[in-house]
Design a protein around this nucleic acid. Structure first.
Lengths: 209, 209
DNA sequence: TCAGTGACCGAACTTTTGTTCTTTTAGAAC
DNA sequence: GTTCTAAAAGAACAAAAGTTCGGTCACTGA
């Protein structure tokens, strides 16, 4: 990729900052003014060059039809529907959770959730989940699920024990092995009928104040 | 805030999806077509309503001058400058780390890093940091720092032991107490001269495949 | 019943904005 | 010196896009 001329660099930087501020791209004449260029045709000329060099993408005949190629994706907002603690039933998302706009949310980069649907988040309460390497205050991002594949980390409810837990899930015949994330700790074996998978853990986020 | 009419809701949703796709807002006529509205003046009418209700902000006389008020922020890209493991010196960012564009990066929501500068990330290697509730493969987001306040979580290098560690930091006279995040585990006490703070841990991110 | 109002329609109008075309300039190549 | 090309100017043009305005329709409250 060839070097940018000072003018092209200045145009690119202006587009970046303009988009950052206004959330829509500048017009050719705004670029012209900001970069102190004498003619709109010069802007057009350099935009064509930038497009050929791969820095931008233009939608022709469309006002402000400039897209930055290396733009950063936007975060996605995930509803925090409640807290998860050992001795407490795990909140499950209801059918209308995904429409509601008023719940507390956590922002995560889109690559964390991919194309998954029915994603929600729980705030960890207490220190009972440290064998899952999850601390008080951590946010666990979950995908709604009733079943799991071997090796997936799930939030599960143990009926007999009346207890919520975060563990890796493995089928073993009629039974299920729940393996802590911390490998130095022993797994739990229980009857398959005794556990209720509430969701798969897809991401954990911790802020360290 | 009053209820949205179906038409207004549909307009708002269209603007959202359009911006998501094109990175610039639609024109009034594009809204008109997409929402099957008979006249541009009706679009204008409803955009005024949406503006009054606080859902959007308009820049008048400007094509595509529509800003969503609750727009999602973009992620920030943080360079992953290396790995952190118990028996290995902790990589430190160099002066030009922040200019380089070619390193591997991790995306985090802007609210995680705030206005902090000199933020970088390390990938955790091995399971030696489980007392910090950090697992193999986790990404720790750090802020460059040579010193720390009491209670802050730091990445530190223990000179005598030739060991890297993630702990909460407390001054205690000439000595320093390093407290594991897992409160059931015992702290380490060491001479203040023996530890070298390499950075503050501001965020931890774990993907659960 | 009648004025008032919110929502909508159509069309015309004006401004904004991207595009094109002709020229000019400055170097580089021959 | 001539030729060629990248870069830039300036002006004119045409399409895109925001705005305005007179009028309709349904509904509401006096």
């Amino acid at each position: 990729m060839r070097e940018l001329s000072p003018k092209q660099f200045s145009i690119l930087e202006f587009i970046r900052s303009f988009v950052e501020e206004h959330d829509y791209p500048p017009t050719i004449r705004q670029i012209q003014e900001a970069c102190e260029i004498s003619s709109t045709s010069v802007v057009d000329y350099n935009l064509r060059a930038l497009e050929k060099l791969g820095y931008i993408h233009r939608d022709r005949d469309v006002s402000r039809g400039i897209e930055l190629v290396d733009k950063r994706p936007r975060v996605v907002a995930i509803p925090i529907i409640g807290t998860i603690a050992a001795g407490q039933p795990i909140p499950v998302p209801s059918a209308d959770t995904w429409q509601q706009y008023d719940s507390e949310t956590v922002h995560v980069p889109p690559d964390k959730v991919g194309k998954r649907e029915h994603v929600y988040a729980l705030r960890v309460k207490g220190e009972s989940m440290i064998d899952a390497l999850v601390n008080d205050g951590d946010i666990v991002v979950m995908q709604k699920a009733e079943t799991a594949q071997d090796g997936e980390m799930v939030a599960a409810w143990l009926k007999d024990e009346q207890e919520a837990t975060l563990k890796r899930f493995y089928h073993e015949g009629d039974r299920v092995r729940l393996q802590p994330a911390n490998r130095t700790m022993a797994p739990i074996y229980t009857d398959a009928a005794n556990i209720q998978v509430q969701g798969k853990v897809i991401h954990i986020s911790r802020d360290n104040p």
